[in-house]
Nucleic acid binder design. Structure first.
Length: 559
DNA sequence: TCCTCTTGCGCC
DNA sequence: AAAGGGCGCAAGAGGA
């Protein structure tokens, strides 16, 4: 069912579609779109087709819809798959390509990100003047279906359809999470800040008491006056004047220094970061009515991970998890995938030995028992090094052991690295493509003997990227499938204002806010969704993707 | 004053 | 111990 909101007012148009995208019957105009959509959802539960969830779904909330086909996200996936990486993906851009018209650039990439709330408004679809948006939605959707059908390999085609469905489900969910919000206790947050920094300054912009005192102590320890500890330049100079040459002001660098100012500096940086990134200003900007409402960007990372825009939703410091507390009578079900990426590697490569370590329990423990004389740290370090392309340190012998014992798994990542070094493109399990090298990359690497060390270094860097991409992106495939399945299951548990709802997602971790009496059912739904995601994405594999799940009152109490 | 780049660090 | 993948954000540095 194609759906286009009117430019103004609460109405909109609907157009029934066949599976291949051809229109079934004439479009209908609904004076009250939300009511018409709710009725259609209850009666036929169609797959909704729209330009972008931000413009079509967000205005309908808190209405809940089951599934959708998001044209903008699908366009991006298809363009990547077809090798047209980075081409504009708006409805107008897709329509223009269909009709060989000049393609408008994506708005978000052309200017400063102001007026973000209107970026996806109906009148910002980038359509040529006079074009009917509904006609464009129908035509672009049909064309996308044809492009998917053109994938010749049947397994690849099926997986790509799954990718589109999962990405689109993510679009629904991101809008819903932004609408529901993560429970956030400003009073507890404030208490944490006061303990760490001192009371909130009355005058905005002034330093909290404890931070200011630390700055003074630093000045005394370094024997300087009018010293700004936030300035790298001044910090480096002050330490140099004490006879200490630092190559940077990084904390681990300071930790090696034997000087009373070093510990003070580290402490100052920790506190200053909390204050700047997640202090009172952050709370004022992002917490309203006991909820933190993050703006997720679905597909915002090339690997398919979500990104966030404003609010730093994916970088909440662990210490502030104390402020995330369920409402009275409610609970948080916190679940995170254990050792997701090594399990993804085991499943992707079908390495029999590595799969045995990932059949259950602690993967690194099993790996250590098999190949590292029980040394779990070595096993973990070696496997992470293999997945990231680490070469330095004492990693060599560990990688050699892994290569001998798990040739298929190591061969898999090394093949991905070689493809990247040669300028090629790799894909996730479900078919998400990695970006090709930038044009300048070829200038550097085409003639390595001429480009010299810089070219070789650039090629190796791209090899590390593609090596990690196949794992990180396939992990994102799995996580999206988990989200979609979990969301579907939660909808069956209850409806209305007492329904359990997802409130947080961070790469391999989810939080569901649920009425207490449904918490056990939610936990079961999480486990079922995880196993379903494994079967959908990786099929028949002995690898398991266990989730460690905790039912808690406060996020900080989950493990 | 505005804008971009760099640095450093939070998260996975 | 501090290198190897992916991000977003704030503050300072420095040029226009």
């Amino acid at each position: 069912m194609a759906l286009v909101p009117d430019q103004h007012g609460p109405g909109g148009r609907l157009q029934p579609l066949a599976e291949d995208g051809t229109a079934l019957g004439p479009p209908q105009h609904a004076p009250r779109l939300a009511a018409a959509v709710a009725q259609e959802e209850a009666e036929t539960a169609p797959r909704w087709v729209w330009a972008a969830a931000e413009s079509a779904y967000a205005p309908l909330l808190p209405l809940r819809l089951g599934r959708c086909h998001d044209l903008r996200l699908t366009e991006a996936l298809l363009l990547g798959h077809e090798g047209s990486w980075g081409a504009p993906r708006s409805l107008g851009a897709a329509w223009s390509r269909l009709h060989a018209l000049p393609v408008p650039p994506d708005l978000a990439e052309t200017g400063p990100a102001d007026a973000q709330d209107s970026l996806f408004a109906p009148d910002r679809l980038q359509l040529p003047p006079g074009t009917d948006p509904l006609e464009a939605v129908v035509a672009v959707h049909a064309a996308q279906q044809r492009r998917v059908q053109a994938i010749t390999d049947q397994v690849a085609r099926t997986r790509f359809r799954l990718l589109i469905a999962a990405e689109s489900a993510g679009a629904l969910l991101a809008a819903e999470i932004a609408d529901d919000g993560l429970p956030w206790r400003s009073d507890l947050h404030d208490g944490l800040l006061t303990d760490l920094l001192g009371p909130r300054p009355h005058i905005p912009g002034t330093q909290p008491k404890l931070l200011a005192e630390l700055a003074v102590e630093l000045q005394q320890a370094l024997g300087v006056r009018s010293f700004n500890p936030d300035s790298h330049t001044q910090v480096l100079r002050a330490f140099a004047d004490q006879g200490i040459q630092l190559s940077s002001t990084r904390s681990w660098e300071l930790a090696k220094i034997d000087h009373p100012a070093a510990a003070l500096m580290i402490r100052y940086k920790e506190l200053a970061r909390i204050h700047a990134a997640h202090g009172w200003a952050w709370q004022d900007a992002w917490v309203r009515g006991g909820r933190f409402r993050p703006e997720y960007v679905v597909g915002g990372v090339v690997s398919g991970r979500w990104a966030s825009r404003g609010g730093g939703a994916l970088q909440i410091p662990r210490i502030l998890r104390r402020a995330v507390v369920a409402d009275p009578g409610w609970a948080l079900v916190v679940a995170d995938a254990a050792q997701l990426e090594p399990r993804v590697l085991a499943a992707l490569s079908a390495d029999a030995g590595l799969a045995r370590t990932a059949a259950e329990g602690d993967l690194y423990e099993a790996l250590a028992a098999q190949a590292f004389q029980g040394d779990r740290d070595k096993a973990k370090l070696g496997l992470l090094g293999a997945m990231y392309g680490q070469t330095s340190g004492d990693i060599g012998p560990l990688l050699a052991t892994l290569r001998r014992r798990y040739p298929a798994a190591m061969g898999y990542v090394e093949a991905a690295a070689r493809t990247g070094e040669d300028g090629g493109v790799v894909h996730s399990r479900l078919g998400r493509a990695c970006p090709p090298p930038a044009a300048e990359w070829f200038d550097l690497t085409e003639a390595p003997e001429a480009a010299g060390e810089a070219g070789a270094r650039s090629a190796r860097a791209r090899g590390r990227f593609t090596r990690n991409f196949v794992i990180q992106a396939s992990g994102a495939d799995w996580a999206l499938a988990l989200l979609a399945g979990l969301r579907r299951r939660l909808a069956t548990l209850a409806s209305g204002s007492d329904r359990p709802h997802l409130v947080f997602f961070q790469h391999d971790e989810v939080i569901v806010h649920t009425p207490l009496d449904l918490a056990d059912e939610v936990a079961a739904a999480v486990a079922a969704a995880g196993d379903e995601a494994r079967a959908l994405v990786f099929g028949d594999t002995p690898v398991r993707f266990p989730l460690s799940t905790a039912v808690v009152d406060c996020y900080a109490d989950a493990k």
